[in-house]
Write a protein that binds this DNA or RNA. Sequence first.
DNA 1: TGATTTATTTTGACTAATCAAAATAGCCGC
DNA 2: GCGGCTATTTTGATTAGTCAAAATAAATCA
Lengths: 221, 221
Amino acid sequence: MATSTVENYLKHLLLLAEDGEALVPMGALAAALEVVPGTATTMVKALADSGFVQHRPRLGVRLTPEGRRVALNVLRKHRLVETFLVHVLKMDWAKVHDEAEQLEHAISDEVLDRLDALLGHPQTDPHGDPIPSRQGKLHSQVYATLATCTLDRSVRIVRITDQSAEFLRFAEQHGLQPGTAVRVADRNLPAGLLAVQKSGKAPAVSLSLVAAGKILVEPAR
Amino acid sequence: MATSTVENYLKHLLLLAEDGEALVPMGALAAALEVVPGTATTMVKALADSGFVQHRPRLGVRLTPEGRRVALNVLRKHRLVETFLVHVLKMDWAKVHDEAEQLEHAISDEVLDRLDALLGHPQTDPHGDPIPSRQGKLHSQVYATLATCTLDRSVRIVRITDQSAEFLRFAEQHGLQPGTAVRVADRNLPAGLLAVQKSGKAPAVSLSLVAAGKILVEPAR
DNA sequence: TGATTTATTTTGACTAATCAAAATAGCCGC
DNA sequence: GCGGCTATTTTGATTAGTCAAAATAAATCA
Ligand SMILES: [Mn+2]
Ligand SMILES: [Mn+2]
Ligand SMILES: [Mn+2]
Ligand SMILES: [Mn+2]
């Protein structure tokens, strides 16, 4: 069995690669795992020996099909656990990431399946992150963000791509959560600022472009 | 934070001591944890340095109040998780012990509290094992067993004290689960056998005395 | 091209947890 | 009261994962 350290390395490689073919630089992997680069190098060589990754010395590392399979299963556990914690246990969506970071290594595939059924086979977790299917399909669409979408057009928030508790709490405070319909009322490029208007007469929310870039949207139907 | 190894040592010491004052022999602890005795000795010395146990060399080991506090919290997690898995996820009661063995180290105190509330603050787990209270009270009553209770008297099963999947599956197959009313129709001491009769006209179940001793009962109200 | 900066890898050391096997202590019989 | 059995402890080695710091390779700049 893969240890939880191994699972974490593989999961982070999956998240850092996205497409799957790109080589992840050792430094990026080390930073994501909060270890020094030498540690990541050592570990990656062990992972390569186990057939989970391909290591191109000095260039980077990428998952093998087997490594990707394991990583997708861990990611599925992570996101289904987050969904369970928010929807069933009513936990704060800003706290569930840290919980899931542990639980993703402790639940069996059988518990995973039963959780999935209990939750009604959700497609995304509470932050809008797509949940890999049981068969290992991960459909991560490309979305516009509040920083790039059309001005004054009604859009629906679909995903928050920053897991940090501070950002999630901020977003919740202003009602910027997946499912919410909003529109960018004003964008001031030089100032790096924009104003988001929720439907109704709530006051507009002021956001930096960086923050707005973390909020993915799709055209409201 | 205590590692999951430390948590397992403390939990097993709690289960092996029961009353709390008895010294647990090193061999018993090693056997429970499935490690060689030398490993247990080494670990116990480390636990003593951390203040979790008191080690009387060559005599045995027992929990300190702090060790007991930690152990009760782990045991509470274990049994609440088992209850969740059976009652919410509808898992086989013979499988949940192994699942809980992992999950007991991965869930936070906040998740614990919310699980407890979701389940309606249960007093016992699916096997009838008492769940320690949030405050660390563990009321383990002394019960009669099917091997010792009055002959031909209606009793209610309250607890199965064998966690093994085989025994639990056997018990379930014959409807010998907590809550079920039964009566010992016949006991043959020389043969080491007894017959258990469920209410209704189901055929009597034949049990060895050893097996019967693992099924705790109380007088049916 | 040659020197400097930066990323990566290597080396040596450490911690937690484990086992195999040798040493030891305590008890038990006679 | 001495010899032997048994449980426990000690010793030496191993594995997984980590860091600090030195070595090296590659990229960038002069
Ligand atoms: Mn994790
Ligand atoms: Mn998420
Ligand atoms: Mn455990
Ligand atoms: Mn139980």
